[in-house]
Each structure stands twice: as structure tokens, then as C-alpha cells.
């Protein structure tokens, strides 16, 4: 009994170490690179605020992307949802409060609600049309981008999101920290301790079997779309606060870029999730991305935007190569160790 407990504790500790390995590796390598060049990765308070807000944005986008992607539903419309929901929220809030106190809270709540509705609409279209989700999501992206363009006339929306209330959000990390904690807690609970979560995981692992056991896949898919939309609503709000505008001129899939920021953290997060909870994995992956982003900021005079994009793409490629050849790599390492042991015996 005692031994079993000890084993379990040992196993948990080992899993924790493996889960934290990548974030620590990122922190160590990036700190070393910064220090070697006489810089700090997070040199001041302003850099810390940016670090936390960026972590929140990446974590939420990654979660929103993975909810549907893990079930085989590729959703291109996430970026358009973020923009559209924040636009609706900003316009409504400005009409009511005129940029006065409480604007940020109202935009946040409305953006979350609008995002959930837009996600649900996207899900309904998928469910009703019954064509591959990748196709419906392309159509939904165009519809949302077209609607944004029609409302804004292709202009940046600025007045509606430039006020003291929104400025306070982006100037203090505490609000983003609260969002991270709340969303993380809620997502862990929702996907691990509720009937919805159990059904989601059953459907993810084998839809046919799950449906035969009586799980209704349509309500579950719609809920996934709504949750994903709600998360993107929050991302839209945070992007609006961070950029101090909403770009109304996104056409022909140019909003898709928002979604692509989540690819690398999604793979890293899923990998970390093997050793710990998947949602925490996404959070740790977002931390890694934010560290990388902060490091880019520290070296912004040396590494320009296009070089940063290349580095990100290379990291994604390397990680995918590793994931695809993980077993092969393990076999090679084990064989080498085995041969070494045999040589030692001889």
C-alpha cells in the first residue's frame, strides 16, 4: 500500500518535471541569449504587462482552436469571430457609455457574449449544412469579414476603443491575470469534471462508438463552437485594448492570421498535456510563446518582424518533426544505451 502510494507520488513528480521541462527550457535558453547580449527578457514593468496580456491572448486562442480541432473540426473563422465580436461590443458600448467609465468591462462582457453567439451561428451552419467543417468555416470567415467591412467601411475602429477604461486594462497585468486564472479554472472544470466534458472526450476519441452509447454529438458540437466563440470574444477584447483599434479592413481571409498564432502553442500544449492536464499544457505553452515574444521585443532592433515570423515557423517545423519521429528517436536512444551497456559488460 505504502509502496503504491510512493510509486504514484513518484509518477506524479516525474510527470510534473516532464511537463515543466519545455517552459523551463524556453526560459533558460531565452534568458541566456538575452543576458549574453546584455539585455533582459522582461526588462521593466511595461514589458511585464505586455508579457501577461500576450500570454492570455495566446492561451485563449489556443484553447479556442483546439476545442474544435481536436474533434476534427478545423475552424478558420476564429480570427473573424474575435474581430466581429469586439466590433459589436465596442460599437454598442460606445453608443451607451460614450467611452466613459466602465467601458472596458462592458466591452468585455458584450464581446464574450457576441463571440459565443457568433460561434454558435458558425456551429449551426456546420450542423445544418453537413458539409466538411473546413469548408463551412471558410464561408463563415468570409461572411464575418464582409460584415465587419460593411459596418466599418474598411476603416480602423478607434474612437470606440480608445478611452481611459480600455487604457487601464492594457496598462495593468492584473486584469489579464484574472482572465487567465478564471478561464483556466473554468476550462479545467468544464472539460474534466462535467457531463459535457466526458461526452466531449468520448466523442473526440471515437465518435461512432460514443454516439452508439447514447451521446448526442450535435448539442456537444454546438456547445464547443459556442465556447470557442466566447473565448475568441475575449481575445477580440484584449486585442482591441492592446492595439487600441479594431481593423475593419480585413477581407479575403486576412483575419486568419489571428488563428495561426495558436498553432505552435497548440502542439506544444498538447505535448505537455500528456504529462499534466491539457488545459494547463496550453497555459504553459502560451507562457513559452510569450517568453519568445518578449525576447523578440528585447531584440527588436536586431530581429525584424519577418525574421521573427521565420523563427516561429522554424520552431513549429522542428517541433512537428520531433513529434512525428518521437518513437523513432526513442528507439534510437534506447538502442544506443543498450549497446553502450553491452559494451560495458564485455
Amino acid at each position: 500500500m505504502q509502496n503504491s502510494k510512493r510509486e504514484r507520488r513518484k509518477h506524479k513528480f516525474s510527470a510534473l518535471i516532464r511537463a515543466l521541462f519545455i517552459p523551463f527550457l524556453f526560459a533558460a535558453v531565452l534568458s541566456l541569449i538575452s543576458a549574453a547580449n546584455g539585455k533582459a527578457m522582461i526588462p521593466n514593468r511595461s514589458a511585464f504587462h505586455n508579457f501577461v496580456i500576450y500570454t492570455a491572448i495566446v492561451m485563449l486562442t489556443t484553447m479556442a482552436l483546439s476545442i474544435n480541432l481536436n474533434s476534427g473540426r478545423f475552424d478558420f473563422s476564429l480570427g473573424a469571430m474575435a474581430l466581429f465580436s469586439s466590433l459589436i461590443a465596442a460599437k454598442l458600448t460606445y453608443a451607451v457609455l460614450g467611452g466613459g467609465p466602465g467601458s472596458a468591462v462592458m466591452i468585455f462582457v458584450l464581446s464574450l457574449a457576441a463571440g459565443a453567439c457568433l460561434g454558435l451561428i458558425s456551429g449551426l451552419i456546420y450542423v445544418l449544412l453537413r458539409i466538411p467543417p473546413i469548408i463551412t468555416s471558410l464561408g463563415v470567415t468570409l461572411i464575418y469579414e464582409g460584415a465587419i467591412y460593411t459596418i466599418t467601411g474598411g476603416r480602423y475602429v478607434m474612437e470606440e476603443v480608445q478611452n481611459a477604461s480600455m487604457a487601464a486594462f492594457s496598462a495593468h497585468a492584473v486584469y489579464a491575470l484574472i482572465i487567465i486564472a478564471a478561464v483556466l479554472g473554468l476550462m479545467i472544470y468544464l472539460f474534466n469534471y462535467t457531463v459535457f466534458g466526458f461526452n466531449y472526450r468520448a466523442l473526440k476519441e471515437g465518435q461512432k462508438v460514443a454516439v452508439h452509447t447514447g451521446i448526442k454529438e450535435i448539442p456537444n458540437a454546438l456547445a464547443c463552437y459556442a465556447i470557442s466563440g466566447g473565448l475568441m470574444g475575449m481575445v477580440g477584447f484584449m486585442n482591441a485594448a492592446r492595439n487600441t483599434n479594431i481593423n475593419g479592413g480585413n477581407l479575403n481571409f486576412s483575419s486568419v492570421g489571428i488563428m495561426f498564432t495558436a498553432f505552435l502553442p497548440m502542439f506544444i500544449g498538447s505535448y505537455i498535456g500528456r504529462f499534466i492536464n491539457t488545459e494547463i499544457g496550453f497555459f504553459l505553452a502560451a507562457l513559452c510563446m510569450s517568453m519568445l515574444n518578449s525576447c523578440f521585443a528585447a531584440f527588436s532592433n536586431q530581429i525584424n518582424a519577418s525574421a521573427q515570423a521565420i523563427i516561429n515557423a522554424l520552431l513549429l517545423l522542428l517541433f512537428l518533426i520531433y513529434l512525428s519521429n518521437e518513437n523513432l528517436l526513442r528507439n534510437v536512444l534506447q538502442n544506443t544505451a543498450g549497446k553502450r551497456k553491452a559494451a560495458d559488460h564485455d
Binding site: 445544418l128 449544412l129 464561408g139 468570409l142 461572411i143 464582409g146 460593411t150 474598411g154 479575403n252
Partner: peptide, 14 residues
């Protein structure tokens, strides 16, 4: 819905 998609696509063609 297909019509809506088509209209949306045309509207977004800017």
C-alpha cells in the same frame, strides 16, 4: 445558407 455564404463572399470581395 449557401446563398448567404455566396452573398457574404461577394460582399467581402471589396
Amino acid at each position: 445558407l449557401s446563398c448567404t455564404l455566396l452573398i457574404g463572399a461577394l460582399a467581402s470581395c471589396g
